[in-house]
Nucleic acid binder design. Structure first.
Lengths: 146, 146
DNA sequence: TCCTATCATGGGGTTCACCCACAATAGGAG
DNA sequence: CTCCTATTGTGGGTGAACCCCATGATAGGA
């Protein structure tokens, strides 16, 4: 007989996501930083400075929420906001050297969580899983698209 | 150059989960039912009646939260709670014929969401993804474990 | 000049996961 | 039997995360 919950990927991926979330949470519990802070810093470091609206799109994050996160990151001087001379509505966000340093620390923690999550899989299987997950995302959602 | 967000499965799976969540939400938007209602009904149908504490463990759901969901489901007569004669603290939850009927409807919607989510993947790839996701979950979390 | 669109920002609202407390009950130690 | 402890269902409260709407400033085109 079929157990439908274990057949439904929408359900499975939710469980795995929750589990992954807990692992990341445990790793980040030592500091005041949340996973969004990591995402923002990583995006800025890997793909360069960006206008807030672009950054929100890259991370598939609500613009209102991004404002709060950037406020926190900027207060601690992990990022800087500077006005765009070409368009005075825009603010260009960039990571600071201090932010780069924090990112390196957080990256170790996230990598560790990743390793715990994938402990049961071989290196090949890990790659396969990552590729399949990436292909499931619509283009706009893909972290390295845009 | 490496884009770390697209390499971190903990991050990827979070994005995919959110996307899947939205697809399910869209499908369920026609009715008042949430994905937890589906999960509860599916677990009761596939694995039989259960004491609330067991059910919460099966679904990896907080016991307090389960109470509220069961209240809603019971009010609409999709499930019944009956006292366990062997242990008067316990209440045994079972799905009703009415609940079975609702489950069949919801299952179609969830299946449809699943199909949308996996549109980019071949049948083989879908199976591979589901298997890998299931293996990533610890035993206690696995929907068909316990 | 006017109309529309976009930007950052603020506020509120909802869902979800999680935690603590508590009364009722069970079960074992003495 | 009397204590002590554990478990169960339940309620309340918290924080994170996602989402929507409004607004003032600015840009750009008709």
């Amino acid at each position: 007989m079929t157990h439908r919950l274990s057949d439904r990927v929408v359900w499975l991926v939710g469980r795995v996501s929750l589990h992954a979330q807990r692992l990341v949470q445990d790793q980040l519990a030592t500091g005041p930083h949340r996973k969004q802070h990591y995402g923002i810093l990583a995006s800025l470091a890997d793909r360069g400075p960006a206008v807030q609206a672009q950054l929100a799109d890259r991370l598939q994050l609500d613009r209102s929420d991004l404002v709060s996160f950037l406020d926190e990151l900027e207060a601690a001087r992990y990022v800087v906001r500077r006005g765009d001379p070409d368009d005075r509505r825009r603010k260009i966000v960039a990571i600071t050297p201090r932010g780069q340093k924090l990112l390196r620390e957080l990256d170790l923690l996230v990598y560790s969580a990743d390793d715990q999550l994938l402990a049961a899989l071989s290196p090949d299987e890990r790659v396969t899983l990552a590729r399949l997950l990436a292909r499931v995302l619509p283009d706009a959602d893909r972290p390295d698209a845009g």
